[in-house]
Design a binder for these strands. Sequence first.
DNA 1: TCCTGATAGTTAGTGACTAACATTAAGACC
DNA 2: GGTCTTAATGTTAGTCACTAACTATCAGGA
Lengths: 181, 181
Amino acid sequence: MARWDRTHDALTRAASELFAEQGYAATGTAQIAARAGVSEMTLFRHFATKESLLLADPFDPLMAEAVRSRPADEQPMCALVEGIRQAWADTDPAATDALRGRLAIIAETPDLQGAIERTSQDSVAALIEALSERGVPSARARVAATAVIAGLSAALLDWARSDGTALDDVLGAALDVLGGA
Amino acid sequence: MARWDRTHDALTRAASELFAEQGYAATGTAQIAARAGVSEMTLFRHFATKESLLLADPFDPLMAEAVRSRPADEQPMCALVEGIRQAWADTDPAATDALRGRLAIIAETPDLQGAIERTSQDSVAALIEALSERGVPSARARVAATAVIAGLSAALLDWARSDGTALDDVLGAALDVLGGA
DNA sequence: TCCTGATAGTTAGTGACTAACATTAAGACC
DNA sequence: GGTCTTAATGTTAGTCACTAACTATCAGGA
């Protein structure tokens, strides 16, 4: 592992720890850099914003892939919903714990309202691209992809706030609603 | 008009002018306050953020009202879409010019990505409330309302970027897509 | 006219983020 | 192993949105 990756990881770890210990707002970028054993400047060379220390767009190519493989006669919202549904089914459930932790921080931090949408722009773009290949005009594709991602984000935040609900159930219900049920 | 309202208007006017003249990012809050003939502190007493100088949540009660009056057997997304469609039809087309100007500024300012969603939380809450009264569980209501507002925001931004397209057409198409067409 | 609360000013600060430039350390090549 | 290049980091000094605590002033009713 090269130097860049080592500092990158050190920063990510330091940030997660501090956010969990004292909350997002109460944690300063200087403090994060200090715990990572690095200058604040270096922190901002690795992460454009404090936000991005918490949220990296996973940019799941599986979602766009699944959307592409939906039957050609499905309408945009339906193709998105069903594609995402099946992409998520193929995802391993190990990562959900870490996800939940980060979402909980977002849920309780007013500054981070809309943070998921902001960092999901790559995913949105990928979904738009996938819809475009199905012949959906770009304006419509953008509306559908933006709406679905926003709806899913809301569902994820609800899940992080709730206790004990299964992620699959929450996502399933959200996708049902978005699909018109 | 009381003193508060006079200052408030002066600030709004100063901000619009400066944003239009030099762009959002290039305009400082101190500059806005100066043009309004007021201290910077006063600006922040009237507007919580620089953003809110540009975007006030119109919080249209008509939308929620129209959603409430949809047939009881309609699914959440459908009730929202059709309710909003008819609420918008009742809106006078005079305000669209000003709207377009503000949206254009948002569209060309990276800092303002997600600004509409952020300032539409009152509208989202009103829509959730309206859906709840129809018996929709709050988690589902939140997903649907968030998605629809996000989709509409995307459509509005597209409209502001485009030239000459009619707002009605853009919104109609967006609502069609969101409704599953 | 005076008094009281609403409104505004002042000062000093915090914290995220940037620019410009100097410095060190890592990996390739001889 | 030593040298060389460049990726990576450090340092310093700033900008700008926004806040806190406190003081001053204005408007409008008694």
